[in-house]
Structures are given as structure tokens and as C-alpha cells.
Design a protein around this nucleic acid. Structure first.
Lengths: 148, 148
DNA sequence: AACAAGTATATACACTACTTATATAAATCG
DNA sequence: CGATTTATATAAGTAGTGTATATACTTGTT
């Protein structure tokens, strides 16, 4: 039974931030990618949601718009995403995933999964279910934090 | 029931990396810290484990040793950690948490928790338990990845 | 229609963070 | 003792990030 006391909740929040960041860094590093986690998140967003504006990407990933512009610039220079004008708003530039970008995202995921798989595969059914549900919950929590 | 098929495991691994990093970045950004997640992780390590060598910190956090040296330099310059010679090995330098460092870690955690608390508090008992268990599992998985 | 205010992105600048390669100094092993 | 290994630091280059501001377009008002 998890404590609902403020202290219990606060400690849980701190641990999730701390361990979430450590796990992501550790696993992605072992996968040997050159790209930052943000860059990979951009590719993942585009794959899941389709084309997105620069500003929308910045909001979703909780970095500033200029930082996202720079990230998109690097991805574009490497041919992983493409910019195009938004027909409905000439100020906006719409980012879309290229085939090379989709490929690189997929390859990263396969390499990362290959590293993590042995450790995860050793878990019981209940812990697997916990991790799967936790991934959903973390996504929802981040969505909610970004929306406020 | 979570799929134990290779595809299911791989997708889970990819989602954990992706959502773990996004949640950590989002939450820490909202807490308005100046420090990187790595710097905060260093403080957390020292608090939990006591004094640690630079190399040991680098290993635990899966960054290179020079990157950890630089991180410790910055923390030392701000008085959050202190370096001292290891009496048992003159090559090594041992990093310890200062009172100011412990305070800053605590304050960050409180600010971050305050941001996340409303979202977490709305969850049911079962989801709270899932997150608590997931934090432990992510720590164990990262430990295991770093040890190999 | 014109103008003011707001919005989307980009640019400029300064600084942090990270990597690879290498240097320095000390420990260990033969 | 000399060779090798180990722990940390330094150097150089690049990526990543924030704040402040510029540019271009849109929207709302009169």
C-alpha cells in the first residue's frame, strides 16, 4: 500500500524524475546513438502524430522554441526530417519525418531494445505489466504537465 | 496480459526510454532548476551512497569520466560538493556532498514534487503502486545495464 | 482598408554539457 | 625497478539550451 501522505507522493515524484532520467540515459547510451534523447523524441513524435509545427514540438518536449528550432535544423541537415510551409499559416513551418528519419528511429529502437531486453525478459509477468502501465502513466503525466 | 514476444518486449523498452526521458525533462523544467538532471543525480547519489569517486559517479550515471569531472567541477565551484584526496589511493579524488548541496537537492525535490503532485494525486491506489514499483524497477534495470 | 496587437519561427549571443583523444600521476605486477 | 594499468584531469571540438530580440505573417478593431 503506497502512502498517500504528501511526503509519500513527493518522494515518489522525485524518484520518478531521478530514475526515469537515469534509465533513459543509461539505455540510450548503451544503444550507442549519436543523437540526443530530444532528437529521438522529435522523430518519435512525428512518427506517432504525423507532421507537427516547430512550436508544437517544443511544447510537447518542454524545451524552448529556439532550442527546438536548432534541434530541427540539425535533424534537417542530416535528412531525418523535412520542413515545409504550412499552407494555412505562412508563419508556421511544418516538420515531417523522412524515410531516413523513420529508419534511424527504428534502428535506434532496435539497438536500445536489444540492450534492455535481457534485463526486462528476466522479470515476472507482474513487473512487466507494471512497466507497461508505467510507460502510459508517465506519458499522461508529462502531457498534463505540458498542458497546464 | 503483456506480450512476452520479442516485439512486445522491444516496444516496451523503447517506450520506457522515450517516456522516461520526456517525463523527467518536463517535470524538472517545470521545477525551474538551473541544474542539469545529471548534476542533480550526482547530488542524489552522494546523499544515498555517501562519498563516491569521480569514476564511480561516471559509471553509475553512464556518462564519460571527463564529463563527470566537468560536472563535479561545476558543483564544486558552487559549493554543492567537495573534493578530497582518497587516503587509500592518491590518484583518486573522493566527492562528498556539502550541506549546501544537500539543501539544494532537497529544495529541487520539493519544487519538482509540488509541480507533479496534483497530477499524481489524482491517480488511483493501483496506479500509485505501479509508479512506485516502476521507480524501483527502473533503478534496478539501470544498475544492471551499468554493471555489464 | 489600415493599423495595432498578437503569434510562429528564426537569429544572435553566451554558456553549459558532452565526446574523443591525450596527458599526468600514482598504483600494481612481473 | 621498469612496464602496464588505473584514476583523474586537460584540451579541443561540437551539440544543446536559455534569454533576448528580429522578422514575417495573422487577426481583430475601427
Amino acid at each position: 500500500m503506497i502512502s498517500r501522505s504528501p511526503e509519500g507522493i513527493d518522494q515518489l515524484a522525485a524518484r520518478l524524475i531521478s530514475q526515469g532520467s537515469r534509465f533513459a540515459r543509461t539505455a540510450s547510451r548503451r544503444a550507442g546513438t549519436q543523437r540526443s534523447l530530444i532528437a529521438l523524441r522529435v522523430l518519435a513524435n512525428l512518427r506517432q502524430e504525423g507532421d507537427l509545427r516547430v512550436g508544437e514540438l517544443a511544447l510537447r518536449e518542454a524545451i524552448t522554441q529556439p532550442a527546438m528550432t536548432a534541434t530541427v535544423n540539425r535533424l534537417e541537415a542530416d535528412g531525418l526530417v523535412a520542413r515545409s510551409a504550412d499552407p494555412s499559416d505562412a508563419r508556421a513551418s511544418v516538420v515531417s519525418l523522412t524515410e531516413a528519419g523513420a529508419r534511424e528511429l527504428h534502428e535506434f529502437r532496435m539497438r536500445a531494445a536489444a540492450e534492455v531486453r535481457p534485463a526486462i525478459a528476466g522479470l515476472g509477468e507482474d513487473d512487466l505489466a507494471v512497466l507497461a502501465r508505467a510507460a502510459d502513466l508517465l506519458e499522461e503525466l508529462a502531457d498534463r504537465l505540458n498542458r497546464e
